[in-house]
């Protein structure tokens, strides 16, 4: 196996930031646009593949990749046996419980029985359990915010970054159920058998995201 570590990057919203982070950290100089034509790029320092976000933990757990970058929201729903090493801070979003404007739930009153539509059943279940609420979850694969308007569910548990989609669909946030950012994960064996390379990767990414955050945090 030449070319250093094998890394899995998530296609979609996090992809360009993930590529930029790898370049900034000096891990692998890759331009996101190169992946328009191919799914696997071998550089002198790393072999990088682009896969669907939900597939990143699969590649990493099975040892097809040593490490990967993936949103915490994906990890909630994919309880796979990987190490979660670094909070990469980008791709921030929140998981919220939202209900139609004017509904009892929107005013903070939890009805006896509740149906919630979500793409995140595991995280939603944990959230409702922590509140002691028995809620019927309906797993959807997209456009969750449509479900209350069509009477499929009373509320949604969904990811929001700006809140605009909620507003456009006349939903109001009732509670926050979780916060997610991009994470560096690693295979359990790679952390042991390639510990130096994996720990160097983790340290380089940590340094880069900490340095990037520092000016904003300064007074």
């Amino acid at each position: 196996m030449s070319g250093g570590l094998r890394l899995a990057l998530p296609g979609g919203a996090l992809f360009e930031d993930a590529c930029r982070l790898l370049s900034d950290a000096g891990v692998a100089d890759i331009d996101a646009s190169r992946f328009d034509r191919q799914l696997k790029i071998v550089t002198p320092t790393a072999t990088v593949v682009k896969v669907r976000p939900t597939d990143v933990p699969v590649y990493v757990e099975m040892g097809a990749c040593d490490a990967g970058i993936v949103g915490k929201d994906v990890l909630w729903e994919s309880p796979r046996d990987c190490y979660e090493l670094v909070d990469l801070r980008f791709g921030a979003c929140r998981l919220v419980l939202a209900a139609p404007q004017g509904s009892p739930l929107a005013e903070g009153r939890f009805p006896q029985s509740l149906r919630a539509a979500t793409k995140y059943p595991i995280a939603a279940r944990r959230f409702f359990d922590s509140l002691g609420l028995a809620v019927e979850l309906i797993k959807l694969h997209g456009s969750v915010e449509l479900a209350p308007a069509m009477g499929l569910a009373d509320c949604v548990v969904d990811i929001t970054a700006t809140g605009r989609t909620l507003i456009a669909n006349h939903l109001v946030e009732v509670a926050e159920a979780g916060r997610a950012t991009a994470r560096l994960i690693s295979n359990q064996a790679s952390l042991k058998t390639r510990s130096e390379a994996v720990n160097q990767l983790a340290a380089a990414l940590r340094r880069t995201v900490t340095a990037a955050a520092a000016p904003a945090a300064a007074p």
Partner: peptide, 11 residues
């Protein structure tokens, strides 16, 4: 203890 091989992603 755990036993690893460089060829495999599991112990």
């Amino acid at each position: 203890f755990e036993l690893f091989s460089a060829d495999l992603g599991f112990p």
